[in-house]
Structures are given as structure tokens and as C-alpha cells.
């Protein structure tokens, strides 16, 4: 349960800190492998925690913002690790671990009381796929925005940018396909739960805006393969919109009566 969270989170934190340090400091293969091992260990700690939490509260831990942040930390670090194993970009895995640690810190700062109730509208076979697909998309797109920020501020030359920008594209295409699926799963679920597949509820509106921004990126990249900086700027702004959709909506006056504000 959440009471034990600081223990698991600290363990994951230490593992990831060690992993990032090793990735950034050394060029030796052995040490890189050790770093990958540490990254995995951190993920494993959180997986154990979320499994215990799930069995303890008798419902999928996917309702509150704190719970979604936990999944996000797991997915983001997982994506960082897999992309390291696949493409050997050490900076991306370090950045991903860094961002995942930020999310752990936010969760530590806002301790949750574990709430076992789950309102009838959320009791549906769509609940788990909808949330998991979305958080996975968010993690992919979060990783892509890390690539974008690096390309914007630590500007590699036109020659060396090709690799990182291809990686941003790959992450966006994967992330966008999951974002689309999450949106459409949501529509199918809404039809069953509320009688209509789309009601322009504030969360739906912002999810749609997020989708449109990534659509702009994809179409822009498609015809302007060499305008790297502008494309990266679009990608960075898109992630800001995504964050509004995820957290910001709860604070918007236009969203007072949103059916998606379940907690906090």
C-alpha cells in the first residue's frame, strides 16, 4: 500500500541515480551494462510495489493522478532502457530516468491515501486498456520531447542531428498510434457508459487538442524533412499541451464539471 511507497520509490531512485551516473560518466561496455542492470532494478522495484498495491486495494491502480504518475515512471524508464538497448543512445536513457525520477518525487511530495472505491462508471473492461494505452503513449511522447529539447538547446550540427531526429520520429509515430488507440478506446467506452461516444467533455477536448498538435508535427515533418529546429519546437510545445490535458485540466475553470476529474 501507499504507506510503503517511500521505501520502494527510494530504492528505485537510488538505482536510477546510479544508472544515470554510470551512463553519463563512462564509456566502458562493462559499466554501461551495469548501468542498464541498475535501470532495470529500479523498474523492478516499482513493478513489485504496483503489484502489491493492486492486490491490496482490490481494483486496478489507475484512477488517481498519483497512480497514473506511477505507471508513467515505469513506462518512461522502460522505454528509455529499451531504446538504449536498441539504439545505444545513453543520453536518452539518462534523461528518461531523470524525468521518471521527477515523477517519483512528485508522488513522494503528494502522499496518497489509498482509496478502494471505484465508481460504477469506471467498472468496465475498457478501463485498463484505455489507461495503459494512454500512459504508454504519454511516456513515448515524453521521451520524444526529451529528444526535441536536446536538439533545440544542445543543438547538434545538421550532420549529427539525423540520428536523434529519426529517433524523435520513431517515438512520435509509436506514441501517436497509441494516443489514437487510447482516444478511440475512450470513445467506444463512453458509448457504453454515458450513451454517447463524444460529448466534448473538457478532458476529451484537451485530448483532442493534444492529438491535433502531434498531427501537425507528423504532417510538418512529412513535407519539411530538413526544417529540424521548427519541427523540434512543435514537438516541445505539443508535450506542453499533453501535460495540460493530463494534469492541467483539473485546474481549468472550463473543466469544473468534467466527468474525468475523479480525484484530488
Amino acid at each position: 500500500m501507499w504507506l510503503d511507497f517511500p521505501i520502494y520509490a527510494s530504492a528505485a531512485f537510488v538505482c536510477w541515480l546510479a544508472a544515470s551516473g554510470l551512463f553519463l560518466s563512462s564509456g566502458k561496455k562493462m559499466l554501461n551494462q551495469l548501468a542498464a542492470g541498475f535501470s532495470f532494478a529500479g523498474i523492478a522495484f516499482l513493478l513489485v510495489f504496483i503489484t502489491i498495491l493492486w492486490t491490496h486495494i482490490h481494483r486496478p491502480p489507475m484512477r488517481t493522478l498519483g497512480e497514473t504518475r506511477l505507471w508513467y515512471a515505469i513506462f518512461l524508464s522502460g522505454i528509455g532502457l529499451v531504446s538504449y538497448l536498441r539504439w545505444k543512445y545513453k543520453w536518452l536513457v539518462s534523461y528518461s530516468l531523470g524525468l521518471a525520477m521527477v515523477f517519483l518525487i512528485i508522488n513522494l511530495q503528494h502522499p496518497e491515501t489509498y482509496d478502494k472505491t471505484l465508481m460504477p462508471a469506471l467498472q468496465s473492461p475498457w478501463f485498463i486498456p484505455h489507461v495503459i494505452v494512454y500512459i504508454f503513449a504519454y511516456a513515448m511522447l515524453g521521451a520524444s520531447s526529451l529528444v526535441a529539447l536536446r536538439n533545440l538547446f544542445f543543438a547538434p550540427t545538421e550532420k549529427t542531428i539525423k540520428g536523434p531526429i529519426q529517433m524523435a520520429d520513431n517515438l512520435v509515430y509509436l506514441g501517436f498510434s497509441f494516443l489514437t488507440l487510447g482516444l478511440l478506446f475512450g470513445a467506444l467506452w463512453a458509448k457504453d457508459a454515458w450513451g454517447h461516444y463524444w460529448t466534448w467533455d473538457p478532458k476529451e477536448t484537451w485530448a483532442f487538442i493534444t492529438w491535433m498538435f502531434y498531427l501537425v508535427y507528423i504532417h510538418y515533418r512529412f513535407r519539411h524533412a530538413n526544417e529540424h529546429k521548427k519541427a523540434m519546437a512543435v514537438l516541445a510545445v505539443s508535450f506542453a499541451v499533453l501535460l495540460i490535458c493530463w494534469f492541467g485540466v483539473n485546474y481549468l475553470p472550463s473543466a469544473e464539471n468534467s466527468v474525468h476529474v475523479y480525484s484530488e
Binding site: P202, T205, F208, L252, S254, E256
Partner: peptide, 8 residues
């Protein structure tokens, strides 16, 4: 849609 996102 952004207008819809800000205006209730």
C-alpha cells in the same frame, strides 16, 4: 477546439 478548451 482550443477556444472550447478555455471557454466553458
Amino acid at each position: 477546439v482550443l477556444l472550447m478548451g478555455f471557454v466553458k
